[in-house]
Design a protein around this nucleic acid. Structure first.
Length: 300
DNA sequence: TACGCGTGGTA
DNA sequence: TTACCAAGCGT
């Protein structure tokens, strides 16, 4: 066996024994919810998982599948309902974009998720990662799914670096494609297997190299696990940022069953200028709908 | 390209 | 406690 074939064999075997049983991973042949469109379910899970951990996504995903089992069902709902049911997953513009994607799928694709990477990526909120993930996991398309877990695992394994570059590089995409198994079915499993290895073993902070099936082949381990030396990603600020204020404003509106007066929003943040600017940006983003007489609500 | 965009768990 | 981290996207 070649070196790459050894990686394939060991990581696929590890995945078979260690994969988490997540609902959106259930194969079509065993899909337990006949009314729930599986490609749609995969797409929703992938958008929810953008920057949000599995544990927080799972209950919201189940709720969404109960409410909106097809793109047409979500398209028929108010965008504000999508924002409300998004709950506290964070980055609520994703909910709005999912609603817009459902509308586009219903209008332009007869309600069926397109089995084509370019058409997927043309949908709102679907970038290169999510298009590849939906293509691979919903339709079995052979394409490299390159998220931060994959980038980190492959960086350590092949390049010997502790961390991947701050943002996706052409070299990382090339490497991921080179490592992708030829066989379509193996490729789909490989994508999710490397992602799972990165999430459970080859972790960012405290990698569990002792549990790694390819430790003996890992360039980073063989180099003595050297500390990162290149530029690190810029740390995110939180306290006092517009993001914090927008989050507080939106929480009031999510929790309200009727339009709320401006006074109810004024109490969440002391700085009037920043508060007004953030409310205006939420309106601009389509996350908040202003009504006459200084009332506000999630968009209908 | 670098930055803005939520939220909460963990060390 | 503060800082880091989590299946990115759009501009």
């Amino acid at each position: 066996m070649s070196d790459v074939e050894i990686l394939h064999s060991r990581i696929l075997t590890w995945y078979a024994a260690n994969a988490r049983h997540l609902p959106w991973r259930i194969p079509a042949s065993e899909w337990p919810w006949p009314g729930v469109d599986r490609p749609w379910a995969v797409l929703v899970s992938e958008v929810m998982l953008q920057q949000t951990p599995v544990a927080r996504v799972e209950p919201v995903w189940h709720r969404w599948m109960d409410l909106w089992p097809t793109p047409a069902a979500l398209a028929a709902a108010a965008p504000g309902d999508a924002v409300r049911e998004w709950g506290r997953l964070g980055y609520p513009r994703r909910a709005l974009r999912l609603h817009a994607a459902a509308t586009a799928i219903t209008r332009d694709h007869r309600g069926a998720i397109p089995a084509d990477l370019l058409q997927l990526q043309a949908l709102p909120g679907i970038g290169s990662y999510t298009a590849a993930a939906v293509g691979a996991f919903a339709f079995g398309i052979r394409s490299a799914v390159v998220d931060v877990n994959v980038r980190r695992a492959e960086a350590r394994l092949v390049t010997g670096a502790q961390h991947p570059a701050p943002s996706l590089t052409a070299a990382e995409t090339r490497l991921a494609n080179e490592l992708l198994p030829r066989d379509n079915a193996d490729a789909a499993t490989w994508n999710v297997a490397v992602m799972e290895l990165g999430a459970l073993v080859c972790k960012a902070s405290t990698p569990a190299c002792g549990e790694c099936p390819v430790q003996a082949q890992c360039a980073w381990v063989l180099a003595g696990r050297p500390a990162h030396d290149g530029p690190r990603r810029t740390p995110q600020k939180w306290h006092g940022t517009d993001r914090q204020v927008r989050g507080k404003l939106l929480q009031v509106l999510r929790d309200a069953s009727a339009p709320v007066p401006r006074a109810a929003l004024d109490v969440v943040w002391h700085d009037e200028g920043q508060r007004d600017r953030c409310l205006a940006s939420l309106v601009e983003d389509g996350l908040v709908e202003p009504l006459p007489r200084e009332l506000f609500r999630l968009p209908i």
